[in-house]
């Protein structure tokens, strides 16, 4: 397993480079123009000069190589500088956003906290409520608990967040006035009161997203448990006189985890991708909103960097899932 992990990690480097090239070419091919948001009153000659100032005049391969150097060399050095107070490559050109002319890494760092608070928290809560719901639903298949769980999960998944979010705002912000409808990104948690405020402002976006995540994961959990509850080994375990709790929670659960682990691992990178619609609705202004604004504004360095970080996480978490398969079911061998 260790050699497998090392081999996969080494293989990940060319894979990621290839992915970054495909993303770059894709963005290059996509229609759009960083000047689309500039007012129509600015004449075309001026726009052309602004494009050249962004470096758009250079050929594609030069720009790609520049980005690779900036991303893999200059930006890590800057992180080291920030951590240890050194000053490597302080003058080198960093990855600069075309929209704001500010380093992409700074903007991402600025937006990480609210994304982790809202999207990360909702994912965590979603997983934590999905697993027990899935297990109980399967164990007591077609009970009232299962039926309600199915109904809520299906409605939660099929009604889009742009609707549930607005509905919550209308009920709890406009009519009842309990929670703020606009997320304050500058809020800092320093004491109990500010912590309560923070909780208040994340309640609505977190519940919208958690419902959506939980709906999906609980369905997979339930289906997988059902598959395993009728297996021969369960009967054997019961016949051996094992306690029902041990049978279900140890033997069945362990064998049912493979699809669930897959789904959860696929979901973790999306946490860092943010939640585009929910962030828009509650004005959380996290990474998801940044990504959509950058795509709409054709801010290629920003889109490229965000997507690539996303790609790294996908490769990493899929590797983790593959390793977990081996832990959950030792018969799975890759070597």
């Amino acid at each position: 397993m260790l050699t497998y992990t090392i081999r996969r990690l080494v293989l990940a480097i060319p894979t990621l480079l290839f992915i970054s090239l495909v993303i770059f070419l894709l963005l290059e091919l996509a229609p759009g123009d960083p000047m689309a948001n500039v007012p129509l009153t600015v004449p075309d000659e001026v726009k052309q000069r602004m494009r050249e100032a962004l470096g758009l005049g250079e050929p594609v391969h030069i720009r790609y190589i520049k980005w690779v150097i900036q991303f893999f060399w200059v930006e890590p050095l800057h992180i080291i500088n920030n951590l240890f107070g050194t000053s490597f490559a302080a003058d080198a050109q960093r990855v600069i956003s075309w929209q704001s002319r500010s380093p992409v890494a700074d903007i991402i760092a600025e937006r990480m906290p609210q994304t982790l608070w809202v999207v990360g928290m909702s994912y965590l809560i979603g997983v934590l409520i999905a697993l027990p719901i899935g297990i109980i639903s399967a164990y007591k298949q077609y009970s009232w608990f299962d039926q309600i769980g199915t109904f809520v999960a299906m409605v939660g998944f099929s009604v889009p967040t742009f609707f549930t979010g607005v509905l919550l705002i209308v009920i709890f912000s406009v009519n009842l006035g309990w929670f703020p409808s606009i997320y304050d990104t500058t809020h800092e948690v320093t004491d109990w009161d500010s912590f309560v405020f923070q909780l208040k402002q994340i309640v609505m976006p977190v519940s919208v997203l958690a419902l959506y995540n939980a709906a999906q994961i609980s369905r997979f959990m339930r289906a997988s448990m059902l598959d395993n509850l009728n297996q021969d080994y369960v009967r054997t375990a019961r016949a051996k006189g094992l306690k029902e709790k041990t049978v279900v929670m140890v033997h069945v659960l362990r064998n049912s985890m493979i699809p669930v682990v897959t789904v959860i691992a696929l979901g973790v990178p999306t946490v860092f991708g943010g939640a585009i619609i929910t962030e828009q609705v509650f004005k959380v202004n996290g990474l998801g909103q940044m990504l959509i604004i950058s795509i709409q504004g054709n801010d290629l360095p920003m889109v490229q960097t965000l997507t690539f970080i996303f790609a790294i996480l996908i490769v990493l978490f899929n590797l983790i899932a593959d390793i977990l398969y081996g832990v959950l079911d030792p018969r799975i061998r890759y070597d």
């Binding site: 607005v166 409808s181 609705v281 202004n285 909103q289």
Partner: peptide, 21 residues
């Protein structure tokens, strides 16, 4: 404080209905 992001509906709501801005 200037707040960006979101859409026109939400902006109007925050001024005229919830009074946050």
């Amino acid at each position: 404080t200037f707040k960006g992001g979101g859409d026109a509906t939400a902006a109007g709501r925050s001024v005229m209905e919830t009074g946050e801005f």
